[in-house]
Simulated assay, not measured.
Amino acid sequence: MARTEHDGSRTVLARDWQGKRFNSPNDVVVKSDGSIWFTDPSYGIDSDYEGDAAASEIGACHVYRIDPASGAVAAVATDFEKPNGLAFSPDESKLYIADTGFTHGDDLPRHIRVFDVVEDGTSLTGGEVFATCTVGLFDGLRVDVQGNVWTSSGDGVRCYAPDGTELGLIRIPEVVANCCFGGPKRNRLFICGTTSLYATYLNTRGA
């Protein structure tokens, strides 16, 4: 896990956990306290297609937190198959994490789980299923100011209310991997399709 500085230099923040190198860090969010939370599935070491084929030193796929003061790395969720996209709720009391284990077996997860962030902001509790994908897989996801979850899927971007109710779908003619809010008012949703970048204005703003 690395950070690119303003002068273009690169600062490595974390190389391993308990002396074992990460699989292939995938998605990352930074909490307002400066802590860095990221997922570490095995996609980058599964084959030479997305990275470099290698055995997992950790032997599992976890979600991690880097402490902003000490730089210490802690595993905050260890019961995932393939943790992928993640995002905090607007008040940072909840953390949504996609599990795309379905890529490695039809009986494995294709859902988003929701965790409660403990009061001191260093660990998680809960982890129930928030929404299950019916077309393709959830991957990257973001949250708006109302707490709605916007997530990629096999046929576009789906939007879910904080209680898990599906509110709608922005249909895209190809598989979507990620999405994010941008623009001066953060009311434009940028959508990464398989071969194209799409954008649309919304009646909400990114958190």
Rank of each mutant, 00 (worst) to 15 (best):
D16L: 09
D16M: 12
D16R: 05
G19Y: 04
R21P: 01
R21G: 05
R21S: 13
N23H: 10
N23V: 04
N26D: 14
V28M: 12
V28K: 07
V30Q: 10
V30G: 02
V30A: 07
K31H: 14
D33N: 15
G34H: 11
I36N: 07
W37Q: 02
F38K: 05
T39R: 15
D40Q: 13
D40K: 14
P41K: 14
S42T: 08
Y43Q: 11
I45N: 06
D46H: 12
S47N: 12
D48L: 05
Y49F: 15
E50Y: 15
G51H: 09
G51Q: 07
G51V: 05
D52A: 15
D52N: 13
A53D: 09
A53P: 11
E57I: 11
E57G: 12
I58T: 14
G59R: 11
G59F: 13
C61E: 15
C61F: 12
H62N: 15
Y64P: 03
R65F: 09
P68E: 10
P68D: 07
A69W: 03
S70D: 03
G71Y: 06
G71K: 07
A72V: 03
A72G: 07
V73P: 00
A74H: 15
A74G: 05
A74V: 07
A75Q: 06
V76D: 06
A77C: 08
T78H: 05
T78F: 05
D79E: 11
E81P: 00
K82Q: 15
N84E: 04
L86T: 01
L86G: 06
A87M: 06
A87T: 07
A87W: 02
A87S: 13
F88V: 04
P90D: 04
P90C: 07
D91T: 00
E92A: 10
S93T: 15
K94W: 02
K94H: 14
L95K: 03
L95Q: 03
Y96A: 02
Y96H: 11
I97G: 06
I97F: 10
A98L: 09
A98E: 04
D99I: 01
D99V: 06
T100W: 09
T100M: 13
G101W: 09
G101S: 10
F102S: 06
T103A: 14
T103K: 13
G105L: 08
D106L: 10
L108V: 02
L108S: 03
P109V: 01
R110G: 02
H111A: 06
H111I: 02
I112P: 00
F115V: 01
F115D: 00
D116S: 09
D116V: 00
E119L: 09
D120K: 06
T122W: 06
T125R: 13
G127W: 02
G127L: 02
E128Y: 00
E128V: 00
A131P: 00
T134G: 12
T134H: 09
V135P: 01
G136F: 09
G136A: 08
F138T: 00
D139N: 13
D139I: 04
D139E: 01
D139G: 05
G140Q: 05
G140L: 04
L141V: 01
R142K: 15
R142V: 14
R142M: 05
V143L: 02
D144V: 02
